[in-house]
Design a protein around this nucleic acid. Structure first.
Lengths: 226, 226
DNA sequence: GCCTTTAATATGTCTATACATAAAGCCGAG
DNA sequence: CTCGGCTTTATGTATAGACATATTAAAGGC
């Protein structure tokens, strides 16, 4: 008696060998349930898993069809930097370079959907791995959206936020740019060297929370498994 | 009578307001089901969704506890480039710059877990959006792992692979580097300009399939929603 | 006291059944 | 011929009950 995972695998295989071509309808749950000799709920679980993986598309009444161009989906687990570093067996440390009130620069304002110049707190942090620069963080925090701040000499801004402010939605983006003077100095690299930048915007229940730009040391790879 | 999504939201909220602190056990399914007045399966569906989102961790017998550092997960939908470009309302085109047998270079070999110099097919493709360079693709294909190849003047290598070769596992990585001479010429940018590179490795049922390096035009952002 | 076996327990899954919901397609009114 | 509304149908969700499985905690043997 097959379980839902076996049915999922079997259906995936039947799609692979083109028993059902891309774009074609596959049999309904009722039918598959009878074929496999299981209850419809079991088939539902299996096909739903394939739908979540993007291999099939389901619509009520219209049935389930094999996706035309199976969009692969990768999951990125966004790590707290400390964990990422420690996960590589290296010693983590961070230094708060500056923390001061500041108006939002245009780019941060646009990402946070707030007016440029909006009152914010600006943080600059250097993350270290084994004592050497790992990433330079520039962060703008919307004070209206977070509880009173603690003393950030003890805990990194990021970790405090992760643990204390609920996130409703957000965005992560990757881009490449030439290292700016601030980041280059902090990371001890040549200005203009290509750096991988991850930008993160998070929105909480009380509005936009924070916008972070992380400039990674050259050679850094962000990797996701499929 | 609440559905599983409402229960999921309710539990998420109760975690948010610290009714159950990070690391703490939350009540068992049986108990929650009684509290909410639903069947256990409904609670199971709700809590499982939270577990998949990384907000709680479940273990048999041990129960469900609130995750200590809620690792946010982002989903990246890896688009066929044509779709990505067309999704922005721009006209897509691609030009196959070269296609020839070649030994695997060291980097590609390492990623594919094949010996350096292993027989492969090397492709170079330029992707265009609205007639202007969008990305430069260097690809190595393991001929042993794919069916006979079609004529790639009609369809892009990528699209043919997506539609014709099943992928078992793989990896996507982002990094920044200075544009190499080949990519710089193809993209019509200054050599040494910072470019975002996405590397993709895919493995199929018959072994490693392909390794791709996509060099994007400066200013390109890859963005994921949380 | 320490190690092994056993029982208790929370989650995981399956079943059979029922009703809800969305949307495709039919059909009649205008 | 077109626009609503109705019917049909596949998926979505809920339920009570059962058994499976993984783990922990307790009981037992040495």
């Amino acid at each position: 008696m097959p379980g839902w995972e076996e049915i999922r695998d079997s259906v995936r295989e039947r799609i692979r060998v083109r028993e059902w071509a891309p774009g074609a309808l596959i049999p309904g749950e009722e039918r598959l349930a009878a074929d496999y000799g299981v209850a419809r709920a079991t088939v539902n679980r299996a096909i739903r898993a394939l739908a979540e993986a993007g291999l099939v598309e389901r619509r009520k009444r219209a049935g389930t069809r094999v996706a035309e161009l199976p969009t692969r989906r990768a999951r990125l687990e966004i790590p707290v930097i400390r964990r990422e570093v420690e996960g590589q067996g290296r010693l983590y440390a961070c230094r708060l370079l500056s923390a001061r009130p500041a108006g939002l620069p245009a780019e941060a304002a646009a990402r946070l959907d707030l007016p440029a110049g909006h009152a914010a707190l600006a943080f600059e942090t250097l993350h270290l791995a084994d004592g050497r620069p790992h990433a330079h963080e520039a962060r703008w925090l919307n004070p209206a959206a977070v509880p009173p701040l603690p003393d950030f000499s003890q805990i990194s801004v990021n970790e405090w936020l992760v643990a204390n402010v609920p996130v409703v939605s957000g965005e992560v983006a990757f881009l490449a740019e030439a290292a700016g003077p601030g980041a280059a100095a902090a990371l001890a690299i040549a200005p203009g060297a290509p750096v991988l930048v991850t930008e993160r915007t998070t929105v909480g229940p009380d509005g936009p929370i924070t916008f972070v730009r992380l400039s990674h040391v050259p050679g850094h790879r962000v990797s996701l498994r499929l």
